[in-house]
Design a protein around this nucleic acid. Structure first.
Lengths: 349, 349
DNA sequence: TTGTAGGCGTTATCAC
DNA sequence: GTGATAACGCCTACAA
């Protein structure tokens, strides 16, 4: 049923020119008479020609593919990861590239396969671990590599990530500006900090530093993110520091319970207690009251990551030394309904 | 810095055999003397040989890639979609296949590019729309195609989906078994039903039929899934049918609010009202009380989808006529803490 | 059981 | 400005 695919030779014959002319007319890599180009383009349209990907990759030594390695068992918030992945994909298409979706099942052997087999021209890693075995493997293969996240040693790589310290600092500033003096930071599970997960540790660090500079009293409480653990955490905060009026949450699972528990303790948000979240907008909009929140630009993350890999691929093609670019994306503070001046004080701008 | 890639010819030279012997030794497509094979394998290891993907695809006429088209602007629950995508990817690797992540930006032209250019050997579509333009295009290209979902016309395709009618029926049965007589079905937004989204319509249908057979009284109420809309919906249910003791929710966003509102109305779950959700396990486990829920096997969905495409690709390679397989995956009912015998009655098994 | 050789569809280097 | 013609690296009849 399915007929032989249309090849470049078919187009050439149909247009009455040579194969190489067709190739150049389509790639634009050498000047072509307008009339000739017209004939070629018509033939392409009439025959429904689509260049063969493998042949192009083989002859041109570029696959026009980028491998995107996604986390498998992750404590990353899934919709965020997905949005980044999609944004990478969309950006890739705008550059004529395709995205290969990979998981990290096979460890360093997998990246060797990708690089040595010419499967992809570059690799974007989304799940970096401490002492990640794949990074040296990638370096050894000399394949363009971009990290979404923060590596131990960024030499030979480009990286892009949210500016987590600034996220923390924005929270401290916002609450301080509203006149709050006693703040609780409800964070991720203790294990997350103990394994030095960058996003958690750096956010906390940025918060702590700014909070101290602004003269805030604060406690940091790790939290599993279940209802029960949040209940325990909140109870302890209110017992230890009954004057606490400001809450920072960086744990998607703890947000709902925290709001419930404040309500249950007789505190109205935002009149009696302000809550600021570090989370995606879609989440912040979902609660009642809608949450003042600090959000990292996820779309942009994916876009920048792809542009970085593109830059490295282009450099590699031209035999140039690519620059190691480290980009931190500035977060957004959106004030919604969950924060207000501290009770008993006016705003202190 | 990066040296010339190792080719099959290099391996042949190193092992002192011909190129075709290496090829056959690796593919196993013809018998090879154990000793020869050993020499080849050693050479492969010593040189770090990885076959070139493009060359293999060009010569073998198979790209060993499958395109997975994911929804872009979706009302699908994102973690579910992501889990399916990952499960497809993992299964693909077990078959030596790679997954190309695509979005539906370009409509039918995109699938032509994929098929005609030999980019992928098959396509898995995750976001089917009514009257989807890509399906005829795919048929015309004669490329193996699998749908995750339910098409208007499945001719020439394989499809896999959750068995939504059975999901609805399981809910009705479970509540009926517990002695509930008045049930409310809190569904998706009205618009979802009006556009005939399969998962919504078919679930409701399965529920309705079984509920009638079991002699249940029930109302179906569409719901936007925000807190406010859920509040309106629940208030109306309790006003219209104050004897309602059983709730079925098929709307991720409405679950939390529904539980809150029942509590606020003075009803304890499950003593005064039973709630059964149609949702992923991870969500069901997240609430207090943990929810009795009907769940479709997402992992299996991805796995089956890939196996279907593999079967079609194999058939196409052998010039055989592939079978059009339509698979519905049986859902799971897991009884947790949110359902109990109807108040004032014992269980009625 | 193994080797030889032609071809897969493009790109890119030569000539013209 | 355009046309032949090698690569590109692998697969697979066909021959031995």
């Amino acid at each position: 049923m399915s007929s032989r695919p249309v090849t470049l030779a078919d187009v050439a014959r149909h247009a009455g020119v040579s194969a190489s002319t067709v190739s150049y007319a389509l790639s634009g890599k050498r000047p072509i008479l307008d009339e000739t180009r017209g004939r070629v383009e018509r033939a392409v349209r009439e025959l429904g020609y689509h260049p063969n990907t493998s042949a192009r990759a083989l002859a041109g030594k570029r696959s026009h593919m980028v491998a995107l390695v996604v986390p498998l068992n992750t404590d990353v918030y899934v919709p965020t990861m997905t949005e980044i992945a999609i944004s990478v994909t969309v950006t890739a298409r705008q550059h004529g590239y395709n995205i290969l979706l990979m998981t990290n099942d096979e460890g360093p052997e997998e990246v060797r396969r990708i690089a040595a087999g010419g499967l992809a021209d570059g690799v974007i890693l989304m799940d970096i671990r401490v002492g990640d075995e794949r990074i040296p493997a990638l370096r050894a293969q000399g394949i363009p590599t971009v990290l979404i996240g923060w590596p131990d040693d960024p030499a030979g790589l480009s990286c892009v990530d949210h500016d987590f310290p600034t996220m923390g600092a924005l929270c401290a500033d916002h609450l301080a500006d509203l006149g709050h003096r006693d703040i609780a930071f409800v964070g991720y599970a203790r294990a997350v900090y103990e394994r030095h997960a960058g996003y958690a540790v750096r956010t906390l660090h940025g918060f702590r530093e700014r909070a101290e500079r602004r003269g805030l009293r604060f406690v940091h409480r790790p939290c599993e993110g279940t209802y029960e653990s949040t209940a325990g955490t909140v109870a302890r905060i209110l017992a230890d520091r009954p004057d606490t009026t400001g809450f920072v949450v960086q744990n998607e699972g703890a947000i709902g319970p925290l709001l419930d528990l404040l309500r249950a303790s007789g505190r109205t948000v935002p009149e009696d207690a302000s809550v600021i979240a570090i989370c995606p907008e879609s989440l912040a909009e979902q609660y009642t009251p809608r949450l003042t929140a600090v959000t990292g630009p996820k779309r942009e993350l994916g876009q920048v990551a792809f542009e970085q890999i593109m830059a490295r691929i282009t450099a590699a093609t031209e035999g140039a030394q690519p620059e190691d670019e480290l980009r931190l994306l500035v977060p957004d503070l959106v004030i919604r309904e969950s924060t207000a001046p501290a009770p008993g004080r006016g705003a202190r701008p």
